[in-house]
C-alpha cells in the first residue's frame, strides 16, 4: 500500500517536472525566434507542411463532407428540414470539424516527423554539434517550423473547409436536387464571419501545438532507436490530446459567453 502510494507520488512529481520542462522549452523556443532564419532554410518546412500534406487533408475532408451530408439529410428529412443541410454542414465544418480534423491529421504527420527527426539528431549528437558551433538549436530547428506552421496550417484549414463543403454538395445536390447557387445561398445565410474566424484562430493555436510538441519530444529523446520510437509515439498522442483540450477552451472562449 505504502509502495503503491510512493509510486503515485513519484508519478505525480514526474508529471509536474515534465510540465515544467515543456513550459521552459516552449518559452525558449519563442525567445529564440529572432533572428528569423533565411527563407532558403525554411523552404523545406514550408513545403513539407503544405504541399506534402495536401493529398491526405483533401481526402479526409472530402469524406467528412460526404458522410456528414448523408447523415444529416437522412435525419433532417424526418422534420422536412433537409434543405438546411448546407448551412449546418458549413457551420459545423468551419467552426469545429475542419480545424480539428486537419490538426489531428497534421499531428499524425508532422509531430511524429519532427519528433523522429530531432530525436535522431539528438542521439547521433547532431544537436550537440549545433551547440558546439554556437548555433541555438531552438532557433535553427524549432523556429523555422513554427513559422511555416503558423502560415501553412491555417491555409490548409481553409482548404479543408472548402473541400468538405464542396463534397457535401455532391451528395446534397444529387439526392435533393438542389442547385449549387441555392445551396450556397443557404450556406451564406447561416455562416457568419465569426464562424470562419474562430476556426482560423483555432488552427493557429493547433499549428503551434503540433510543432512545439513534436520538437519537445524529439529534443529530449534518450536511448537509441527505441527512444526515437517512443518519442514519436508520445509526440502524436500528446499533440492530439492537447489539440482537443485546447479546442475545448477555445470554443468556450469564443462561444461560451
Amino acid at each position: 500500500m505504502i509502495y503503491y502510494q510512493a509510486m503515485q507520488v513519484t508519478k505525480i512529481t514526474e508529471f509536474i517536472q515534465t510540465v515544467g520542462r515543456f513550459s521552459l522549452f516552449t518559452g525558449r523556443s519563442y525567445r529564440s525566434f529572432l533572428p528569423i532564419p533565411p527563407f532558403s532554410h525554411m523552404f523545406k518546412d514550408f513545403y513539407e507542411i503544405s504541399v506534402r500534406s495536401l493529398p491526405i487533408i483533401a481526402l479526409v475532408s472530402a469524406f467528412m463532407g460526404i458522410i456528414m451530408s448523408y447523415q444529416l439529410i437522412y435525419e433532417l428529412r424526418t422534420f422536412g428540414a433537409e434543405m438546411y443541410v448546407g448551412g449546418i454542414v458549413a457551420v459545423a465544418v468551419c467552426r469545429e470539424l475542419g480545424p480539428v480534423f486537419a490538426a489531428m491529421i497534421l499531428a499524425g504527420r508532422l509531430s511524429s516527423g519532427i519528433a523522429a527527426e530531432l530525436g535522431t539528431m539528438r542521439i547521433s549528437e547532431q544537436i550537440d554539434a549545433l551547440e558546439i558551433m554556437s548555433v541555438n538549436p531552438h532557433n535553427y530547428l524549432v523556429a523555422p517550423r513554427l513559422v511555416a506552421a503558423l502560415f501553412m496550417i491555417p491555409l490548409l484549414t481553409v482548404f479543408a473547409d472548402a473541400i468538405a463543403i464542396g463534397a457535401s454538395y455532391l451528395v446534397a445536390g444529387k439526392i435533393l436536387n438542389i442547385h449549387i447557387l441555392k445551396y450556397m445561398d443557404n450556406i451564406r445565410f447561416y455562416l457568419d464571419s465569426m464562424d470562419i474566424l474562430s476556426g482560423l484562430l483555432k488552427s493557429v493555436a493547433f499549428s503551434q501545438i503540433i510543432v512545439i510538441v513534436g520538437s519537445y519530444f524529439g529534443y529530449y529523446t534518450r536511448g537509441g532507436a527505441e527512444g526515437v520510437g517512443k518519442s514519436t509515439t508520445n509526440a502524436v498522442v500528446t499533440a492530439s490530446i492537447m489539440i482537443l483540450v485546447a479546442d475545448y477552451f477555445l470554443t468556450a472562449l469564443f462561444f461560451g459567453g
Binding site: 549528437e125 554539434a129 558546439i132 554556437s134
Partner: peptide, 24 residues
C-alpha cells in the same frame, strides 16, 4: 548563461567520435 556559453564556444571546434554530420 546560455548566451555566454555560446559566445565562448565560438573559440572551439569539436570532432565528435561519431562524426555528428547533419544528415539532411
Amino acid at each position: 548563461d546560455d548566451d555566454a556559453l555560446r559566445a565562448c564556444r565560438t573559440q572551439f571546434s569539436y570532432l565528435f567520435q561519431g562524426g555528428a554530420l547533419f544528415d539532411s
